[in-house]
Design a protein around this nucleic acid. Structure first.
Lengths: 190, 190
DNA sequence: TTAGAATTCCAGTAATTACTGGAAATCAAA
DNA sequence: TTTGATTTCCAGTAATTACTGGAATTCTAA
């Protein structure tokens, strides 16, 4: 089996991009192939199309499962493992955010927490701890916000995003109405 | 010169984390060192503390400059190049978001745009194009929103983040007031 | 329980990426 | 200019990471 030129370009691109995210070329290509595939694929089909060894495909699929970017499914009357990505692109986005956070952010937060608790042994340590605290607070704020956003429905998030910076103006407006002020000097709705 | 245990832990951690972002251990360590340092450092000092060869430090610093994560500064009466990160942690955050977008997102958007314009050669191509369009729309929405947020002041962004999901409720509230409705069935402020 | 099909593991090898030391180039002050 | 200090470039080498094919294991249906 062979890829159409369109599919091939997509697959190769994700192979290259994979290396910029913590996954290798193989893994990127396998994911891209599954993403645009009309139906779930098994390891043999993937290896056949991408010309990877059977083992290499196996390893790649295991890594994608660890990322929760592909799911194992079974087809009736077929013992082999088939794989497909989550149906909804928002679901994929959510999983990506969660996994990156778990792998990259949480260990850093934990290190920063420990480091901040330590008794500084010198003036340099005191400066270093202050910088670490700044970083910690920024990450805490951002991830806390992400947590809250993830609780909203995709539709709500889409709406909020479509509003963009208008949110701030609307909030000013609501604020004024709520507290019955005439004008707070911060401008108005368009 | 030698690092305090506190600084060393931080530096080593960022070395490991570097590999999960597209930079190598060396680059991660150099950045971490500069970040917690009380004053700008030159290449010799960095190589001395981290025990890297002079060239290796040079390459690492060049990469960090390409990421705009460190700035070149000069000290009066000293010809050597000194380096320091942007002062404000929010500035660092902004730069990181921008650079990752430029390197990882823009090339993908460009590929997707091209691919979507092509005449599908088969049913598979049509399916693939539909998936690509979904991905494209999600990325467009998200990056467009990011653009708008980046125009706000850090203080405003901090405030919005602190509000978290309350934003949605406040917006419903503003919406109702604005259009003079008694109740739209979507709930109320707490 | 067994045969056959599929998956996982593993050791050796290939490919890639990172690092070093020295040589060349650049730069600023004299 | 020239000199001395500093930075950049480069080729060879080391280290890491990825890949392969086969062997061992697991699993299911008969």
């Amino acid at each position: 089996m062979k890829l159409t030129p369109l599919a091939e370009r997509f697959v190769l691109h994700f192979g290259e991009m994979g290396s910029r995210w913590g996954v290798n070329r193989t893994v990127g290509q396998i994911y891209a192939l599954l993403y645009i595939s009309a139906k779930p694929l098994n390891a043999d089909e993937i290896g056949d199309v991408l010309e990877f060894s059977r083992s290499n495909v196996g390893i790649g699929l295991k890594e994608l499962q660890a990322w929760r970017l592909v799911k194992l499914v079974h087809l009736p009357g077929d013992r082999r493992d088939y794989f497909e990505p989550p149906k909804d692109v928002w679901e994929i986005f959510r999983v990506l955010v969660e996994e990156r956070r778990r792998r990259e952010i949480e260990p850093t937060l934990s290190l920063l927490r420990d480091a901040m608790l330590e008794q500084p042994g010198s003036e340099e340590d005191r400066v270093a701890q202050a910088k670490m605290r700044q970083m910690y607070e920024l990450i805490e704020l951002t991830t806390g916000w992400l947590d809250e956003v993830q609780r909203l429905s995709p539709e709500t998030v889409i709406n909020l995003m479509r509003m963009g910076a208008k949110v701030q103006k609307l909030l000013d407006f609501a604020d004024r109405l709520k507290f019955g002020r005439k004008d707070d000097g911060k401008g108005d709705l368009p």
